[in-house]
Nucleic acid binder design. Structure first.
Length: 596
RNA sequence: GCGCCCGUAGCUCAACCGGAUAGAGCAACGGCCUUCUAAGCCGUAGGUUACAGGUUCGAGUCCUGUCGGGCGCGCCA
C-alpha cells in the first residue's frame, strides 16, 4: 500500500512523520511508476536514499537514486534522473525537482511547507521532533553499572551522559527505551569493601588495626563504619585477638584470608549486615549523584538477586546439559572459542565460586527474557574483550547475538591548566563525577560529554568547561534560548500583546529566516539519525547550528521594532526556535535557562 | 606477538547506511553595541583527511598493507 504524501497528511497527523521520509516516499512512488512502465527492472533492491542538500543551490533535498540505478536500467544517470523527476507524484510538499551534476536529483520544498512550520511546532510543543520510526520497539540501555565500592569518577560520567542521552533520543524516535543500572553487588570487590568497613569500625571500637593497603582507603569507608558504630554500638566487635596472625605474604591472599576470618567471626548474618550496609549506602550515593547529573534509571538490577533466585545456577546447568561447559583443572570452562572467541572462559572457579562472567550470562539472558526486542550495553573501552564471550553465551542459550549491541565508550583524559590530570583508582586519586559537577556545573559537563561521539578518545579541558565565557559552547546554546525569552519579557514590559496563532508566515522572506526555518524542519531528522546510529552527539551539533542561525538572525533583523504584522511573524518564528532549543537541550540533560 | 578502537586545520572535534568545492569552535588577524542581553554577529587566514596501494561513475568514509596512539589478552571485577 502506498502512502500519499501531500502536505495535508504531513501536517495533520499529529507529529509522527519526518519530512525527509515524506520526500523519500515521493521518490519511491516515482520509482514504482518507472518500474510499472518497464523502464527500470522490477523490484530493485536499492534503498531510496534522500538526504538534506549540503549546499545552497542544491535545493532542500538531494537523491543519488538515478546514479545508483543507472547501470541496471541501461540509462545514463542524468536521463534516468529526468524520468524520475517527471514521475514524481503531485504534492504540496515539493515545488520543483531538477537534475544536477553527474545525476543528482535536487528537490525543492514548496514555501508553504516551511511557512506552516512555526504553527506546527507550537501545536506539538515538547513533542515536536518525536516520531514513530522506532515503531515502539522495546529497547533497554544499560550503562554505568559501576561497582558500588566507591564514588563514580569522570570516566563513569561520560558513560552516564552518553547512555542517558541515548535512551532519551531513542524514546524521542519512537522506541520504547528504558535505562537500567546493573549493581555488581556480588563479587570479591564487595567483600573487600565490607571488610574495609568492618576494619574501620573496629578502629572506632578502639582496636589497633593495621589497615591493609589493598583495602578501600576512601573517606566514605570511615563514614559507613561510623554509621555502623552509631547504629549497632559494639555488636560486631568479636574477639579479634588472632585476626592478623600469620597472614599470607601475598597482598591479595592476605585480603582473602582476612575476608574469611571476618565472615567466621561475624557469622553469615553479621557479615551480611555489614555487606548490605556498605552496598546500600554506596548505591544510594551513586543514585543521588547520577540524579543530580540529570540521569535517572527506570530500574536498578542487583547481581546478587540473580544468584539468590537461582538464575545463575540454572544458566550454568543448562550450559552443562548442552555440553557447552567442560571441566579442566577443577574449574568449569565455557566453550566460547566455538563461537569465535579467542579462547574458552572460566565460569566456575576451582574454589567453587562462579566468575563475574557466570552472572553476566544469567543477566543477559534475563534481560532478553524480560521481553526486550533489543538490549544495548554501554561499556568502558577496556571491556571490549568481553563482548565476544557474552555474545557466545547468548548463542549457546539459543538466543540471537544480534539482539545485543555493545557500545564502547573511550576514556576521557582530563586537562587542567594545560596539564593532564593524573588519575589512579588504586591510590584513590581520581576526579569524581561529583567534583566535576561541582567544579564545572552539570550543564557544562553534560554538554561537553555530549559533544563527543563515544568511540572517540576525548580530551576534557576543565578550564574551558568551567569558564563562564563565550569560549564555553554550552552557554552559546543556552544564551540563544535566554535571549528569546528575554525578547518576550520585553514585549510584556512594553505592554505589547501578541497572538502568535495569527501570524502570517509568508512575510518571512529574509534569507536568515529561511535558514532558520530550514533548520527547524530538520530537527525530527536529526533525532531519527541520532537514534539509528546511537549517536546523540548529533543533537549537540544540531543545537550549535540552530543557535548560530538564531544569533545571526537576531543581529540582522529587529523583532519588536518591526511593523506589527512582520513583528508577529518574526516572534512566531523565534518562539518556535525557543521550543526546539528547549526540546533538544532536554534530550541531552541540559537545562534551558530563561535568563542568563 | 595476537585482538578491538582510533588517526581530519596550530588545538578540540564534525562530516547524515560511499556523493557535488571536507565543515564548526578555540587560538590569530580585521570590522560591528545612543536600537530586542556583545555569553552575540560579520569577514580574513588556516588541509596531500597519518602513509601506500586497491574496489567504482564517485572514497575522509569500504578492502589490504605500513606507521603512530589508546585499550585488552587472569580460575579479577
Amino acid at each position: 500500500m502506498q502512502v500519499s504524501a501531500g502536505p495535508q497528511l504531513f501536517f495533520t497527523v499529529p507529529g509522527f512523520l519526518v519530512m525527509r521520509n515524506e520526500v523519500c516516499q515521493l521518490l519511491s512512488d516515482a520509482l514504482a511508476s518507472l518500474v510499472s512502465q518497464g523502464v527500470v527492472p522490477s523490484a530493485p533492491d536499492v534503498p531510496v536514499q534522500v538526504e538534506r542538500a549540503r549546499k545552497a543551490g542544491h535545493g532542500d533535498f538531494a537523491s543519488n537514486l538515478a546514479m545508483v540505478l543507472a547501470k541496471r536500467a541501461g540509462l545514463k544517470p542524468r536521463d534516468l534522473a529526468e524520468q524520475l523527476c517527471a514521475q514524481l507524484p503531485p504534492s504540496g510538499l515539493l515545488s520543483r525537482a531538477e537534475v544536477a551534476g553527474p545525476g543528482f536529483i535536487n528537490l525543492f520544498l514548496a514555501p508553504d511547507a516551511y511557512q506552516r512550520l512555526p504553527d506546527e511546532i507550537r501545536a506539538r510543543g515538547e513533542s515536536y521532533g518525536t516520531s514513530d520510526v522506532g515503531a515502539r520497539q522495546r529497547v533497554m540501555v544499560e550503562f554505568v553499572s559501576a561497582n558500588p565500592t566507591g564514588p563514580l569518577h569522570v570516566g563513569h560520567g561520560r558513560g552516564a551522559a552518553y547512555g542517558d542521552a541515548l535512551a532519551r533520543v531513542l524514546c524521542a524516535a519512537g522506541y520504547d527505551a528504558v535505562s537500567e543500572y546493573y549493581i555488581n553487588d556480588a563479587g570479591r570487590q564487595m567483600d573487600i569493601l565490607a571488610l574495609s568497613v568492618w576494619l574501620r569500625y573496629l578502629e572506632l571500637c578502639g582496636e589497633a588495626i593495621t589497615f591493609p593497603g589493598a583495602a578501600y582507603q576512601g573517606d566514605y569507608v570511615f563514614d559507613i563504619a561510623a554509621t555502623l558504630h552509631r547504629e549497632e554500638a559494639e555488636q560486631y566487635r568479636p574477639d579479634t585477638g588472632t585476626l592478623f596472625d600469620s597472614l599470607p605474604d601475598n597482598d591479595d591472599q592476605a585480603l582473602d584470608a582476612l575476608i574469611s576470618r571476618c565472615q567466621e567471626l561475624l557469622g553469615e548474618a553479621g557479615f551480611s549486615r555489614v555487606h548490605r550496609l556498605a552496598r546500600d549506602t554506596l548505591v544510594e550515593d551513586i543514585r543521588a549523584d547520577l540524579a543530580r547529573f540529570g540521569v535517572k534509571y527506570q530500574t536498578w538490577y542487583s547481581e546478587r538477586s540473580l544468584i539468590d533466585s537461582g538464575a545463575v545456577q540454572r544458566a550454568v546447568d543448562e550450559l552443562k546439559q548442552g555440553d557447552f561447559l567442560y571441566q579442566r583443572d577443577d574449574a568449569w570452562w565455557f566453550r566460547s572459542s566455538d563461537f569465535s572467541d579467542e579462547k574458552d572462559r572460566v565460569v566456575l572457579r576451582a574454589n567453587g565460586n562462579h566468575t563475574y562472567f557466570a552472572t553476566d550470562i544469567a543477566y543477559h539472558r534475563d534481560k532478553l527474557a524480560r521481553g526486550f526486542d533489543h538490549i544495548i550495553n554501554i561499556w568502558g573501552a577496556d571491556h571490549h574483550g568481553y563482548i565476544k564471550r557474552v555474545k557466545a553465551s547468548l548463542s549457546a542459550l539459543g538466543l540471537e547475538q544480534e539482539d545485543l549491541t555493545v557500545l564502547l565508550v573511550q576514556f576521557a583524559v582530563l586537562y587542567r591548566g594545560g596539564q593532564k590530570v593524573a588519575m589512579s583508582t588504586r591510590s584513590g586519586e581520581f576526579v569524581t563525577l561529583r567534583e566535576l559537577r561541582e567544579e564545572v556545573g552539570r550543564d557544562a559537563a553534560r554538554f561537553f560529554y555530549a559533544l563527543r561521539k563515544p568511540d572517540q578518545h576525548m580530551d576534557f579541558d576543565l578550564d574551558l568547561a568551567k569558564s563562564q565565557s563565550s569560549d564555553n559552547p554550552v552557554y552559546y546554546v543556552q544564551y540563544a534560548h535566554a535571549r528569546i525569552c528575554s525578547v518576550f519579557r520585553q514585549l510584556e514590559e512594553k505592554g505589547i500583546a501578541v497572538k502568535l496563532a495569527d501570524a502570517d508566515h509568508s512575510l518571512l522572506v529574509e534569507s536568515r529566516e529561511m535558514d532558520l526555518l530550514q533548520k527547524l524542519s530538520r530537527y525530527p531528522e536529526v533525532i531519527e539519525a541520532a537514534a539509528r546510529s546511537y549517536e546523540p552527539h548529533q543533537v549537540a551539533y544540531y543545537l550549535r547550528e540552530l543557535a548560530n542561525d538564531f544569533h545571526t538572525y537576531y543581529n540582522a533583523h529587529p523583532f519588536i521594532a518591526a511593523k506589527p504584522q512582520l513583528r508577529l511573524a518574526r516572534l512566531s518564528l523565534i518562539d518556535a526556535t525557543r521550543q526546539v532549543l528547549a526540546n533538544a537541550l532536554a534530550l541531552l540533560g541540559v537545562t534551558a535557562p530563561q535568563r542568563m
